[in-house]
Amino acid sequence: MSGPAEGRHSPPRLDAFLAQLAANNASPHTRAAYARDLADAWASLAAQGLTDWPETQPHHLRLWLAQRHAEGLSPRTLARRLAAVRALLRALRREGMIEHDPSLGLRLPRADRRLPETLEPEPLNHLLDQPADDALEARDLAMLELMYGSGLRLAEVCGLNLPDLDLGEGAARVLGKGGKTRIVPVGQAALAALCHWLPLRPLFAPPGETALFLSRLGRPIAPRTVQGRLTRLARKHGLAGRVHPHMLRHACASHFLQNSGDLRAVQELLGHSSLATTQIYTHLDFQHLARVYDAAHPRARRDKA
């Protein structure tokens, strides 16, 4: 790893660490998040007088975490930032630059398990069933159908290329987190939306461009553009509250689980490496069951005296 970076609060050895992440197929989004979290940690450590990571002791990290907790950061955010520091310290230990990891044994405030935001089928179907007013809306609806119908992440949709689609088989090859590839089914609604978009795609596609979804300028569509377009469509068609792309993936998982009860199939569809990650949707499924029970069971609620 390289020596300390210039600038009082620039984390030492950051460039080499990010290069290692890139070599391990970490996405640009993941590398940017690590860089932000390490910069935050190093700002505190540098203020405590440290000049390089090997000088770090447990009390330095405890003070940093205590400061951020006092500033109102959630346990979830603190855990993510500490995970970035631990990843860097593990790299230093592998290189023999430190003997012991000073982050071991640190305890964080307990995080409440936060359920992902999702959408109910009725408003979601209302949004997706609207006809496209122009070519860009046809593109938008095809992307939304894939996120909801196939459970794709926003980055996965933006990364699709024409050869990844097999319309005859109703399938798509998706490049997920960590460079892992999976095949997902593409349902009839998504196939219909794609068949509407694909004849319009040449209006935007420069020669040789293989990205499935393009901006109006003919470039592969950016995640921020998808968010903006979804917000526009949601407002246009009367959906209340903030709607973001990941809600469609969550809706896919929870609606699939409600109707199938097959947690492992949901895990495979979403591309989760661990079933524990997928199990959060059992909580969403229980919430759905509780609502139905309250509405339908004659003895679910008692009249108040």
Score class of each variant (00 low, 15 high):
G3K: 07
P4L: 01
G7T: 11
D15C: 08
D15P: 00
L18W: 11
A19H: 09
A23F: 13
A26T: 13
A26L: 15
T30D: 07
R31E: 07
R31G: 07
A32V: 03
A32G: 15
A33T: 10
A43I: 03
D52T: 07
Q57L: 14
P58G: 00
P58C: 06
H69R: 12
R76I: 09
R76W: 06
R76F: 11
R81H: 06
L88V: 09
R90V: 05
A91Q: 09
R93Q: 15
R94N: 12
M97H: 08
I98V: 08
E99W: 02
D101H: 12
G105T: 00
R107L: 02
R107Q: 13
P109R: 01
D112K: 00
P116N: 14
T118I: 04
T118Y: 15
E122I: 08
P123Y: 01
L127E: 00
L136Q: 14
E137I: 01
A138H: 04
R139T: 14
L141V: 04
L141Q: 13
M143S: 07
E145S: 06
M147I: 11
M147G: 05
L162D: 10
R173C: 02
V174T: 07
I183M: 03
V184C: 14
L194M: 14
C195E: 15
P199V: 04
P206I: 00
E209P: 01
L212Y: 06
S215P: 11
R219D: 01
Q227M: 05
A234K: 12
K236E: 03
L239S: 01
G241W: 00
R242H: 12
R242G: 05
P245F: 02
H246M: 03
C252T: 02
H255K: 09
Q258L: 04
S260M: 00
A265W: 10
Q267P: 10
L275K: 00
T277Y: 03
T277C: 01
T278V: 05
I280H: 10
Q287I: 08
H288R: 01
A290E: 10
A300W: 13
R302Y: 10
K304E: 13
